[in-house]
Design a protein around this nucleic acid. Structure first.
Lengths: 348, 348
DNA sequence: TTGAAAGCGATACCAA
DNA sequence: TTGGTATCGCTTTCAA
């Protein structure tokens, strides 16, 4: 068993406070005594103040949590999530804080538990589907948090983009190219759907806020050229991975009139779509969302959102909450990046 | 202020233990009483047992730490590090544990402090240059750890590859193709070196264990065909990024007789080298190390090491330490993957 | 400059 | 099934 601060105090023959000060407040005791304490401590194998005990007493932890809806290992599968994490890490590093990655199990009870058990000073909520429940749990703990999905009540800290407008910009690019018969590809479309073609009677039925907003943005652009929601093909992917994107798009082959373009809600899905379509020799247009590094090399037309910034500013908002309520909401810019994966719709 | 367990106990009119049991050991009290406690707690706004206090009392945290030598944000810059993290995350998730990413400041004192303050049950040490100091600090805390760099004493938990043999395999591929005048590219070659050409009188002088072993492996292969260490050009990169690789290789242009091949200690550096060389219209051979996803699309010849496995098995070793001392060391296989970035040396 | 005492918030043993 | 009590390891006024 490792010795405790108390043991050190007894061995040196001073009080616990003094030993504590030797570590945390060097100016509170003579350099000589301090050195004697530190030496004895080392000699006894005392590992220094126990972080957990210190946190309990001090009332803060020195770590912020990052919440992921999906399995934690997926977080690293999506390069955009990695960008976000990079930004959060930068800010955390800057503030001498650690990063606790908290995986949220699929079930609500488990998710709530995970949030309740995390020893952190605050949370960055990355893309939580059931945001409401999660956020309520965080609030119940009285901890600050920053969210990135569709703008909730104006009093919460939020860093994000105009999802709907961004999606619309990609879709307008396609309508401009003459595309009218298209498929929208996303994960998290409806709960418990099998991958492939799905019927969604109304965009508003999509529970995941980000997915909903992006689909709605796509639809806006098509509505503007007379293509209504029911005319859009919806493709559900099993999860947000390249493989799932590739798989979902296979369902298009069964259609009598396959769409001339696929609009994906993420680059990884779009890349998967390209894998399948190009593999089958089809030249359908494909757009993505995020602009991850691979998008460039694959020539994917996509919506760029500043991922690292998003992470960094989220964390900064957590560390230095603005006094001004206005500044609670940070809207980041997006840009449509046109590459070679999109082209004119074939004459019909 | 949020109410505490104690307040709940007083309000309900039961003892603290009973309230505690209501949360942690449902079988220790009647369903009815439990429900009454939980209801009152919710009503009072009690957020559930404080994780820090619980950790202190229980003596364990439910999180493992991952240590990176370099800046934490760099961890996400290198796809191989991301692979490793993915593996660790998988195992952690499986054990219901969280992942604490601990940024290590550049200075030793700061780094030691970071390790001392991390509230975790153990550490995965990823590629720590000053491994010795860091590992000593962890040991002083009495926490278990797993390391991945060059095999230390046989009593430590270790998951890794035969760095030297793996590097040698890449170099032998090049000697087989007739290359004799080559450059070795790495970050962390010597402390405080400016990027570009460096003189290293002896491989043994390289302090970073992984770098040293890989360079030594490269040298082995060339020694076997009569090319000695001083004849090898050493290129230092500012850090392990594509940009730094591209930059370092520019120094070759100044050489009277530029090398016919570049052997990099990582894929990101190799990709950077390709950027510069191909950009200058040169067809020099380039090899990498790791086999990240981009290596395939870039046609990079490289040494594949199982990154996700490395992470997963590291974490597993931490969670279920083998009783058998033999099993403390896990050696993972590597494979040379030959693609298009290497070819015969030009006739001189 | 040093020490005494009071918690921080919860858990777990053991007795009732 | 429930409660009393000691304790986890440290920090922090406040007084000496």
């Amino acid at each position: 068993m490792k010795p405790t601060l108390r043991a050190v105090a007894e061995t040196v023959g001073v009080s616990r406070s003094t030993v504590s000060n030797a570590y945390g407040r060097p100016d509170q005791l003579s350099a000589e005594l301090r050195q004697r304490i530190l030496d004895t401590a080392r000699q006894m194998g005392y590992p220094g103040p126990n972080p957990t005990a210190r946190s309990l007493r001090r009332g803060f932890v020195g770590a912020i949590g990052v919440l992921f809806t999906s399995r934690l290992s997926y977080a690293f599968t999506d390069p955009f999530a990695v960008q976000f994490l990079t930004g959060v890490a930068e800010a955390a590093e800057h503030h001498g804080s650690s990063l606790l990655l908290v995986p949220l199990p699929g079930d609500l009870v488990g998710a709530r538990k995970a949030v309740e058990n995390a020893a952190v000073d605050g949370f960055c909520v990355y893309c939580a589907g059931d945001e409401g429940e999660i956020v309520d749990t965080i609030r119940a703990r009285g901890l600050p948090f920053v969210t990135t999905s569709a703008r909730p009540g104006a009093q919460d800290l939020w860093v994000g983009i105009d999802e709907r407008a961004a999606a619309r910009s990609a879709a307008e690019h396609l309508t401009g190219l003459g595309h009218r018969r298209v498929a929208l590809l996303s994960d998290d479309v409806l709960p418990d759907t099998s991958p492939g073609l799905v019927r969604v009677s109304d965009v508003a039925d999509v529970p995941h806020p980000t997915t909903r907003e992006r689909l709605a943005g796509f639809a806006d652009a098509f509505a503007a050229v007379g293509v209504t929601w029911p005319e859009l093909t919806i493709l559900a992917a099993a999860d947000n991975t390249r493989a799932a994107g590739a798989e979902a798009v296979r369902a298009l082959a069964a259609l009598p009139e396959p769409p001339t373009a696929v609009l994906a809600c993420s680059d990884v899905l779009a890349l998967g779509a390209l894998d399948t379509l190009r593999g089958a020799g089809q030249s359908s247009s494909v757009t993505g969302f995020d602009d991850i590094a691979e998008a460039a090399s694959a020539g994917l037309t996509t919506v760029l959102q500043p991922g690292v910034d998003k992470g960094r500013r989220s964390a900064e908002l957590l560390f230095d909450p603005p006094s001004d309520t206005e500044a609670h909401q940070i809207l980041l810019p997006t840009t449509l990046v046109v590459r070679t994966s999109t082209g004119p719709a074939p004459r019909s």
